[in-house]
């Protein structure tokens, strides 16, 4: 038992030092600085999103997190994806969420702090999952990626509407049908019913 744990710890240490060696922190480059900045924004934004007690602030932190994610995509030279992330996620989804917040919650409303057992439960579940994942990640050796040139927009467009092995025209159409269905569904669900329920007094007031 002890030997197992010891060997495990040794393997972990070795892997971690290998990873940091490959990162070569002694030789900072722009991309490393940018990555660290983005990572910091993402982590901080995520934590604040789920811990903030004002819902509108939570939405704002989520917005920053999504922006930073778009930055990651840019860092990886996927400009198109970054643009989509910005327009759809940060521009579309978040606006919808903010609208719904404004429709359903009072602006000065603060959540009650969650009960301790709940926080503990969340910490246990998320923490154990994170630990496991990080262990696995650290112990995994990925093949060294070849430095490929960044894909240009023409390639992306051809693949998106291509019909060959690497073409995505079918999923593309399916997604469009799905979006249409969701649009109709959302309208149907959220539509006000004809009877005058809106005259009911608001509980929160």
């Amino acid at each position: 038992m002890m030997e197992t744990i010891q060997s495990f710890m040794t393997a972990m240490m070795n892997s971690v030092s290998e990873i940091f060696a490959s990162a070569d922190l002694t030789r900072p480059t722009w991309s490393k600085w940018i990555f660290m900045a983005l990572a910091g924004v993402i982590l901080l934004g995520s934590v604040l999103t789920v811990t903030s007690r004002r819902i509108l602030r939570a939405a704002t932190f989520l917005f920053f997190t999504l922006l930073a994610t778009a930055g990651l995509y840019l860092l990886l030279e996927y400009e198109f994806l970054a643009a989509v992330q910005l327009t759809v996620y940060a521009g579309g989804i978040l606006v919808v969420i903010v609208f719904s917040i404004l429709l359903t919650s009072h602006i000065s409303y603060r959540f009650d702090p969650p009960p301790v057992w709940r926080v503990l439960g969340g910490l246990v579940a998320a923490g154990s999952g994170l630990l496991l994942t990080i262990c696995v990640l650290v112990l995994t050796v990925f093949p060294k990626g070849v430095a490929a040139p960044a894909p240009d927009m023409q390639q992306v467009g051809n693949a998106l509407l291509g019909q060959d092995v690497h073409g995505y025209v079918l999923p593309f159409e399916v997604i469009s049908i799905l979006l249409l269905a969701c649009m109709i569904g959302a309208i149907v669900v959220a539509r006000k019913s004809r009877e005058p329920e809106a005259s009911q007094p608001d509980k929160t007031e």
Binding site: S46, V50, T65, P114, R118, G122, A125, A126, G129, T133
Partner: peptide, 11 residues
């Protein structure tokens, strides 16, 4: 990021 999301979902 994923597990922070899980944590937020639980609390």
């Amino acid at each position: 990021m994923f597990f922070i999301g899980v944590f937020g979902f639980i609390i």
